[in-house]
Amino acid sequence: MSSRQFTLADGAKIPALGLGTWQLDGSKGREAIVHALKCGYRMLDCAFSYGNQDLVAEAIEQSGVSREDLFIVDKLANTWHSAAEDCLDRTLAALKTDTLDLWLMHWPSPLNHHGNHPKCPTLPDGTVDFEKDWNYVKTWQTMIEIQNRRPEVKGLGVANFGIKELEAISFTGVLPLVNQVELHPSLNQEKLHKYCKEKGIQLVAYSPLGSTGSALLLDPDLQVIAEKNNATVAQCLLSWGVAKGWPVIPRSSSPDRLEQNLNILELSVEDIDDISRIGKASPKRYVTAPWHTFEEIV
Rank of each mutant, 00 (worst) to 15 (best):
L8I: 10
S268T: 15
P108V: 02
L218P: 00
F71Q: 01
A9D: 12
S276Y: 08
A16Q: 03
A243C: 06
A9V: 08
L100P: 07
I146H: 10
E61N: 04
G241N: 12
Y50W: 03
N261C: 03
G40I: 02
V269N: 13
K199E: 04
I272Y: 09
A231S: 15
F48C: 00
C39T: 08
E167M: 05
N188I: 00
S63V: 07
L88C: 10
P15Y: 03
F130Y: 15
V269D: 14
V65F: 03
E131T: 04
H81M: 03
N261Y: 05
V34T: 12
Y286W: 14
Q202K: 14
I169D: 13
W140H: 06
S66D: 14
F48D: 08
M105K: 03
S2F: 00
H193M: 11
A281M: 11
P151S: 15
S82E: 07
P121V: 05
T212W: 06
D86N: 07
N261F: 02
V65M: 10
D69L: 01
P121H: 08
P208W: 04
S252F: 04
L17F: 02
I72Y: 07
G29K: 05
H35A: 05
L24T: 13
K119W: 04
C236S: 12
Q23M: 07
N148Q: 15
W134Q: 11
L8M: 13
I249H: 11
V287E: 07
G157P: 06
A32H: 08
V34M: 05
C120H: 10
V178G: 07
G200Y: 06
S3I: 01
K132R: 15
V224S: 13
S3T: 09
E58R: 07
C87M: 03
E182D: 13
E259I: 07
F71K: 01
L70T: 09
R42K: 09
N135V: 01
M105A: 10
F48Y: 14
Q62I: 01
M1A: 12
E190V: 07
K244Q: 15
G64M: 03
D256T: 15
D98Y: 00
N160I: 01
R90A: 15
L76K: 11
P118N: 08
L37R: 05
G157Y: 02
T232V: 09
I146W: 08
M43G: 00
H184P: 12
P110K: 06
I144K: 09
Q62R: 14
K138T: 14
F294G: 08
T293W: 01
H292F: 14
Y50S: 03
L262C: 06
L76G: 13
P176Q: 06
E131F: 02
C196V: 06
M1Y: 07
Q189D: 02
K132H: 11
L217W: 10
V181E: 08
F161W: 07
R4I: 03
V224D: 11
A243H: 12
V248K: 07
Q62Y: 02
D274F: 01
C39Q: 14
I146T: 11
L258R: 11
L218N: 15
I72G: 07
T122R: 15
Y136I: 01
E295A: 13
E266C: 01
S49W: 00
E68S: 13
